[in-house]
Design a binder for these strands. Structure first.
Lengths: 134, 134
DNA sequence: CTTGACCTTGACGTCAACGTGAAGCTTTAG
DNA sequence: CTAAAGCTTCACGTTGACGTCAAGGTCAAG
């Protein structure tokens, strides 16, 4: 398929797909016209990229892990065995994500506490922060 | 205390502290010399700022929630009741954080799966990704 | 007084993941 | 045939949270 279709099916912009290629995350074939020619598997690959990006991993890291999860067949996204040389690196990233989850959880608790401490709305002096003119 | 001490005690750069002031997160007094003069409570405030920043909240939002958690006395960071007008906004942020946690958790699972699928190190072809010259 | 550490305000640089034209080729619809 | 999508490669713009000089003022020690 061409870039537009993949963009629609994977819910990303064409620009993003070109960027991913530039970063080595995707390497589509080319039609004689020069148009990019993506395969079906790329849809799933892009989804994985989005998951990892959403987790804050930079494209350079994703480029390393992607070939380790080439494909397989499964709804949950099964994986193939990968490259043991990157293992400590991957474990480091995994731990960084765990730490990030801890941070977010702390922030979540903080916000939840603030929300819980908020007097219910409707009956208050009203003078707090300027609240900014929106 | 002056900016250098706060920087050391709160584990941030002086530049960051000036930036926080610029964004309205901190408003230290000034000594006649023009030097910033921070109070003890600012150490904790900066820690909270860091937690929320680490969670991906922009400084503009943090500026809104900070006055809602003015202070109190507690090891976990107790809170004062806040501004009900911001409540829906805060709930939105809280949900966004929850979504981010979900993303991170998904990525964590993905990485953990890759790691688990990695053949243990030591006995493999070795040809995988170029591994990049570092 | 001099040195040196620490402080001040600008103001430009950085990094990541794209957005957004610009100028031109290709393919599809009619 | 023409017009309209859709594609191509540059290449600069954006956003956020700072880093990093630059050009000084201030303060404690000797």
């Amino acid at each position: 398929m061409r870039i537009g279709e993949l963009a629609r099916r994977a819910q990303v912009s064409g620009r993003a797909l070109r960027y991913y290629e530039e970063q080595g995350l995707l390497t589509p074939d080319r039609q004689p016209s020069g148009y990019r020619d993506y395969g079906e598997a790329d849809v799933e690959t892009v989804r994985r990229i989005r998951v990892l990006l959403a987790a804050g991993l930079p494209t350079s890291i994703i480029a390393e892990v992607l070939p380790c999860m080439v494909d397989a067949a499964g709804p949950g996204g099964a994986l193939a065995p990968g490259c043991p040389e990157l293992l400590p690196h991957l474990e480091g990233e995994r731990d960084r994500i765990a730490a990030a989850i801890a941070d977010l959880t702390a922030a979540h608790r903080l916000l939840a506490a603030v929300i819980a401490a908020t007097p219910a709305m409707g009956a208050t002096p009203g003078a707090c922060a300027p609240a900014d003119g929106t």
